[in-house]
Nucleic acid binder design. Sequence first.
DNA 1: TTGGCCCGTTCACTTAAGTTAAGAAAGAAT
DNA 2: ATTCTTTCTTAACTTAAGTGAACGGGCCAA
Lengths: 193, 193
Amino acid sequence: MQDILFNFISRYVSLTNDEKNAIRSLDLFHSVKKGTILLKEGQKSQNSYFVLKGCIRVYYIINGEEKTTAFYTELDALTPHCVVSKAPSQYYISCIEDTILAVSNADMEAEINCNFPKFESLCRMLSEELLAKQRIDFDEFKTSSPEQRYLNLVQKRPDLIQRVPQHQLASYLGIKPQSLSRLRARILEKSKA
Amino acid sequence: MQDILFNFISRYVSLTNDEKNAIRSLDLFHSVKKGTILLKEGQKSQNSYFVLKGCIRVYYIINGEEKTTAFYTELDALTPHCVVSKAPSQYYISCIEDTILAVSNADMEAEINCNFPKFESLCRMLSEELLAKQRIDFDEFKTSSPEQRYLNLVQKRPDLIQRVPQHQLASYLGIKPQSLSRLRARILEKSKA
DNA sequence: TTGGCCCGTTCACTTAAGTTAAGAAAGAAT
DNA sequence: ATTCTTTCTTAACTTAAGTGAACGGGCCAA
């Protein structure tokens, strides 16, 4: 698991052995069972997550209905809004598979950022990259229809379609489960013709 | 204009006079006329923008049609995807008003980040904050209808509705101009009843 | 002043998503 | 093995967005 993390980090900065040991000493890794809720609406968590294996999901409860807005899988990083804003969380985070996470908290990060400028550099680069990527995702979402969004997802994250329940995928695509069902039938119809 | 920038920065870090002078010496500020195109599809720009006054707009041209996906106004920062990915831009950026910008380029930033760790800290905090905020915006978009999105916009960025043409607002809301027209008529109808 | 262009609105029509309800299929629990 | 629950699909109906076309207003330029 450490190797996976260090490999990921090496895309951005190269760490000395001292720096690696500093990270190793942090007790970052946690195994989490499917169904575990990592964050609830109203809570003020300090934790950020990096997925080494498995899948976690962000969802809201709006008028008693679950609305799933994001999935994080292998090598995805997530700092919940409440960590940044210091306000109560508006959403839930749960594990939809048995998952292995690297968990860090804000205090820990602040300290490392102070002592290891390289780490702050890593965080900056990673955030900037994620910000730009997410912007593109948002743009694609805005400029395409539900059907295009589904087809796009099939291309870009085919694994999600296998490992995630349809009704969660539906709200991820901004539609109702029934519409997703229908839309898939429609696509199948077209590909036959 | 410098004061506006320094005030903004002071939300995140406090700068010494030396640091302020270093920034002053950079020749960041540019006045740009309404209609100017800052970035075109296919270009590989290095520039990031911070809006001091005015409004810039991100749009795609898809099947010959303009699709506006973002507006940046006073105190908004924008690092285009192509700066981060080093790939050609997929979108255009243009000024929809006479605008005053702070413009920085990647080389400049790299150098400052090296010499002023505080600046890198600022960039990290800003990116993390924007990432989390944009996540919330995206979530709101996914979980609401065009009508709700419009009403939400009226609440959150009432200025945009005044300063931006309807057909650009429409694609910003993920719909066609005709639908926005109709939707507004519908809302007006309801408020009368 | 006229003509052209861009923009926003309206309308009629088409298409697709939301809603409500029902039923089949797959899993989990006892 | 049986029950209970959750998930997915289907269908009929409603509502809203997409499409194509037309009209009027405002603006600019000839």
